[in-house]
Design a protein around this nucleic acid. Structure first.
Length: 220
DNA sequence: GCCAACGTTGGC
DNA sequence: GCCAACGTTGGC
């Protein structure tokens, strides 16, 4: 039986290669890929669109904001360390964000656009909280780790012709001088409605512009 | 399509 | 390591 888990990008050289391959493929193949990929969005979860959820904004920027969780401390799953921290991303500069195995989180990832800004959240660790920011640099494409039986996030039900799970690529943007802890965030009346506070278990979630600006103000 | 049983998330 | 909250599965 497995222990617990959330989504975590894999910091391996293999991934970097895959990203490079995907980037190469993108121009010729991506356009083709999209129509082939069935929309498997959960019919029951009628989520607001990005525009609805992320637009109560004071500025004119046309990108959306998100929060993504990963585990910064070593933990072995199927014999592999699933640790991934903001420092790991900083060292790699760019990484795919694999391992998301929840439909709502996946659907949120599929709404992401290049240039969207994401908080990097450290979870299941000593001080859970927001550690920095990153940018979406490649929009959703099939999560190939779901097809690898050796991979901790293998899912035999994900078919190559009908992929069930998706990932985006992210690029390091900034690391905060301090972790903005969950404890601190929970105490801010401004963040009462934030998904992170209200829905602890969702690993990929939208952040409103107001929430984003407020949280940024805590570190500046 | 209900809902009980089961599995996972993730703070503590 | 515990366990509450909640997501998923599968029998009916």
């Amino acid at each position: 039986m497995q222990t617990r888990r959330s989504a975590k990008p894999k910091a391996s050289a293999a991934n970097i290669t895959s990203i490079a391959q995907n980037i190469q493929i993108t121009s010729s193949k991506k356009r083709k890929l999209t129509p082939d990929v069935p929309e498997i969005a959960k019919p029951t979860s009628k989520k607001p669109t990005i525009n609805e959820s992320n637009t109560n904004s004071s500025n004119n920027s046309d990108h959306a904001f998100w929060l993504m969780k990963a585990e910064p401390e070593t933990r072995f799953e199927k014999g592999k360390d699933v640790k991934f921290s903001i420092r790991d991303l900083q060292e790699m500069n760019m990484s795919c964000w694999d391992g998301v195995r929840n439909y709502e989180a996946r659907n949120n990832m599929r709404k992401m656009k290049v240039g969207d800004i994401c908080f990097f959240y450290h979870s299941n660790c000593k001080t859970p909280g927001i550690a920095g920011t990153m940018k979406v640099c490649k929009e959703a494409y099939p999560d190939f780790t779901a097809w690898d039986p050796e991979h901790p996030y293998y899912d035999p039900k994900s078919d190559k012709d009908d992929p069930r799970w998706f990932m985006v690529d992210v690029q390091f943007d900034s690391i905060f001088d301090r972790i903005i802890s969950l404890k601190e965030l929970q105490q801010c009346p401004e963040l009462e409605e934030m998904q992170l506070i209200k829905r602890g278990r969702l690993s990929i979630q939208p952040v409103t512009t107001k929430e984003f600006d407020f949280i940024k103000s805590l570190v500046e």
